[in-house]
């Protein structure tokens, strides 16, 4: 790890320590009484420690470890998505292909930096393969709906998520060997936006932005969170290949995408009648609950950087 990475993780560690301290004080002020909001806050902060530690270890181990980490992230996300989207017995071949063929192949293509293939593998080849597999089952009930669900799950959980480690494949002049920092910047800005939207919403939230989709999202939280996270993204321009104002613009773009990603994924959850995608991250819900914003931000971020910088 270079100095900038160490500095960045030290900064995140300090931030989390501060968050833990605030959580501790809030807990003490409530006199040890049951307070669901504070308990959930503490659970969230503790989960953040674990997530940052896992990401830190992967960064320390290098590129292959980061690709493997996001492979696992995709696996858990895909599993949550397909668990909640009903399929029929004849969808088995398509589902088996999703888990055992498409998922590993997409990450293999990223591992060998084959841009021409990993950028179209799922949108083109798999898009055509899945309905072929489904049609072989001979079951026409809700055919289009079922084929779309598996395709959608793969697009969100595998294609979109894989664009985070895909940042490692970009050759940026004057930025050689530092691509991991691009991942750190993206993940940090988007996640910080989520956290700050939550904090601003809890402190000042009044006007619900989309009560039917997500009762916890407010205009005040949205504006405050996105503005603050954009500011932090701009201030961190020195770890990216961007200038200050470029970093601000791109941070705003990924934060907006992240916000709308959260809305879209909430709409799917409401339609399925659940509050969370899963239960694997204490206080947060499932992998997809934590990742919805990154899913939407990563591919656009990847292509913006690739088009203008690589």
């Amino acid at each position: 790890m270079d100095n900038n990475t160490l500095l960045l993780f030290a900064g995140i560690g300090a931030l989390l320590a501060l968050a833990s301290l605030i959580g501790f004080i809030l807990k003490r002020r409530s006199g040890g009484a049951e307070n669901l909001v504070v308990d959930n806050l503490i659970a969230r902060i503790n989960a953040w420690w674990v997530m940052v530690a896992i990401l830190g270890v992967a960064f320390w181990l290098g590129h292959v470890a980061v690709i493997v980490l996001f492979y696992l992230v995709s696996f858990y996300a895909l599993r949550e998505f397909l668990t909640l989207t009903p399929t029929r017995r004849s969808d088995y071949p398509a589902l088996a292909a999703a888990f055992y063929l498409v998922l590993p192949l997409q990450y293999l293509l990223i591992g060998i930096s084959w841009y021409g293939m990993f950028s179209i593998f799922i949108p083109v080849y798999v898009f055509l393969l899945l309905p072929i597999l489904a049609s072989l089952g001979g079951d026409t009930t809700r055919f289009l709906e079922r084929a779309s669900k598996v395709q959608w799950g793969l697009m969100i959980a595998v294609f979109c998520v894989s664009h985070v480690p895909a940042l490692l494949t970009l050759d940026i002049v004057g930025y050689e060997g530092r691509n991991l920092l691009l991942i750190a910047w993206l993940v940090m800005v988007v996640q910080l936006s989520d956290v700050l939207q939550y904090v601003c919403g809890k402190l000042a939230g009044k006007t619900k932005i989309a009560p039917r989709l997500s009762p916890s999202k407010t205009v005040e939280g949205f504006v405050g969170g996105v503005a603050l996270a954009t500011g932090v993204g701009a201030l961190l321009f020195w770890i990216t290949p961007f200038s200050f104002w470029q970093a601000a613009g791109i941070a705003l773009l990924v934060n907006l995408l992240g916000f709308f990603g959260g809305l879209v994924m909430s709409a799917i959850k409401r339609d399925r009648g659940v509050k969370d995608w899963g239960h694997m991250i204490e206080g947060h819900g499932g992998m997809l609950d934590r990742l919805d914003s990154v899913c939407f931000a990563a591919p656009i971020f990847f292509h913006v950087v690739r088009y203008y910088w690589a």
């Binding site: 599993r79 668990t83 899963g278």
Partner: peptide
């Protein structure tokens, strides 16, 4: 819940659903 989707009848390879 859901185990019939993990191990559908007549399929050898289980699916890793929750």
């Amino acid at each position: 819940a859901n185990l019939n989707r993990v191990m559908p009848k007549g399929r050898a390879l289980p699916l890793p659903l929750l």
